[in-house]
Amino acid sequence: MDISFKAILIQGMLGLNNGAFYAMLSLGLAVIFGLLNIVNFAHGAFYMLGAFAALIGLTQLGGWIGMPDLQINFWWALLLAPLFVGLLGVLVDRTMLKRLAGLDHLYGLLLTFGIALVLQGLFTNYYNTAGTPYPGKPEMLDGVVNLGFMFFPKYRLFALVFSLLVCLLTWYLIERTKLGAILRAGTENPDLVQALGINVPLLITLTYGFGVGLAALAGVLAAPIYSVSPLMGAELIIVVFAVVVIGGMGSIMGAIVTGLGLGMIEGITKVVYPPASSTVVFIIMAIVLLVRPAGLFGRE
C-alpha cells in the first residue's frame, strides 16, 4: 500500500482519538502522582470499573434492586459512573492508601497493583473475558460524519471532543483557579499548607477520588467502542504509564499533550510500519528518559 498524505491524515485522526483516551487516563495519573506521590497502578482497574458501571447500570442494576424498568442511559452514566467510582476511590484512599503516606513509592505501587488484580479477578469471575457489548450507544451518535478526508464515526468524534474538553477543564481547574493553587501548594509543601489552616488530608482524598473518577469517565466513553471486559484496563495501563513518564511525572499539561501526541504517533506508525505500533511509545520513552530524565514537561 502506498502511504499517501491522506492515509497519514486518516491514521493521525484515528490516533488522536486513542490519544484522547491516553490523555484522560494519564491526566488522572499525573494528578494523583503530583499530589499523593502515589504511582496508581489501580488506574486501569478503575477505568474498567467505569465501563462496567455504565454496562451494569444499563442492563442489570434495575433487576438487582427490584426495579426492572430502571435503565441508566449513556448520558446519565457519563455523570454517575465517575461519581460512583470516584467515591470508591475515596474509600480506597481513606481505608488503605492513607496508611502509606510518607513511605517509599514502592508500597503504594504494590498496594494499588494488588487492588487492580483483585478487581480484575472479581470481574473475571462473573463476566466474559472476551468482552460484553455495551448496548447503550445513543442513537444520535450512530453513523458517520464526512470530515472531507475520511468518514469518521460520529461517536468517536464525540468521544474525542468530549475528552479534550474534560482535559482542558481539568488543566484550567488546577493551573488557573484558587482551588488549583491550593492543590499545587499542597504538592510542593504539605506541612506549610496545613499550617495555613487547609485540610490537606481531605484535599488529598478528594484528589484521589477525582483522579480515579477521570479514569472511570474514560471507561464510560470507551464502553461503546470496545467490548467491556475485565481486562480492558490492564492492557491500556502500561501505555498510559509510558505517557506519564514521557510527559513528566506529575505534569498536567505534559500528560494531556503527550497523550494526544503519542496517540497520533502510534496511529501513524500503524500505517508506516505496523509491527512497531505497540513498541513505538516505549522507544520514545527510552529516548526521553535518556535525554530528559524528568520528562518532556517535567521539572528537573
Binding site: 484515528l14 505500533s277 513498541t279
Partner: peptide, 13 residues
C-alpha cells in the same frame, strides 16, 4: 497487528 490489541480501526481502514 500487535497481540493483544485494542484499537483496530487503523487496520480496518
Amino acid at each position: 497487528h500487535p497481540f493483544p490489541n485494542n484499537d483496530f480501526s487503523s487496520y480496518l481502514l
